[in-house]
């Protein structure tokens, strides 16, 4: 099935996309029930992973001015804001406008052992990459028995 961009028809694939998003909203989401869990389809999409010594956050926000990201962390709650200027609208016939424009702000809850004092941020090819170091694991202490 063909979608003609110029007359706004929607293809079967769009329908699948929509169904997928609804399924994700019903069954996906992390952490379940978290007050800052967010919703599927929010902009920008975020991936989070962890290694033994750091939590890595990947924010898929292409076409932004890196100096204008606003990233704050309070304990283990990370908040990310940014702004992308809209394309000029004059003297043009628009067929598709799917890209995000304007301001966004998202907050995510990170694992509790992150150290808010040790955060690094870089922006490359449209992905904002945040590395938040974790505190050294509290080792179980052996208690000698006299």
């Amino acid at each position: 099935m063909f979608t003609y961009l110029t007359n706004g028809e929607r293809s079967l694939f769009d329908e699948f996309d929509r169904l997928q998003r609804e399924m994700d909203q019903l069954f996906g989401g992390w952490p379940r029930g978290a007050i800052r869990g967010g919703r599927a389809g929010a902009f920008p999409p975020i991936n989070i992973g962890a290694t033994d010594d750091a939590v890595h956050v990947y924010v898929y926000a292409p076409g932004f001015d890196a100096s204008r990201f606003d990233v704050t962390i309070q304990q283990n709650v990370l908040s990310i804001g940014g702004s992308r200027a809209p394309e000029p609208r004059e003297k043009r016939t628009w067929y598709l406008r799917e890209r995000f424009e304007g301001d966004f702000r998202r907050a995510v809850t990170l694992p509790e052992d992150v150290d808010p004092e040790r955060v690094e941020a870089s922006y490359r090819n449209g992905i904002l990459h945040l590395v938040i170091k974790r505190r050294a694991a509290v080792r179980p202490r052996q208690i000698p028995i006299a």
């Binding site: 898929y60 926000a61 292409p62 043009r92 799917e98 890209r99 449209g126």
Partner: peptide
């Protein structure tokens, strides 16, 4: 994944803008 796009036309031709985060 299907990138989000904008497509517009002016007197010269068609412009397509696509979000491809992570792509070098």
């Amino acid at each position: 994944l299907r990138p989000n796009v904008e497509v517009y036309e002016d007197a010269d031709g068609i412009t397509l803008i696509a979000d491809l985060p992570g792509v070098a």
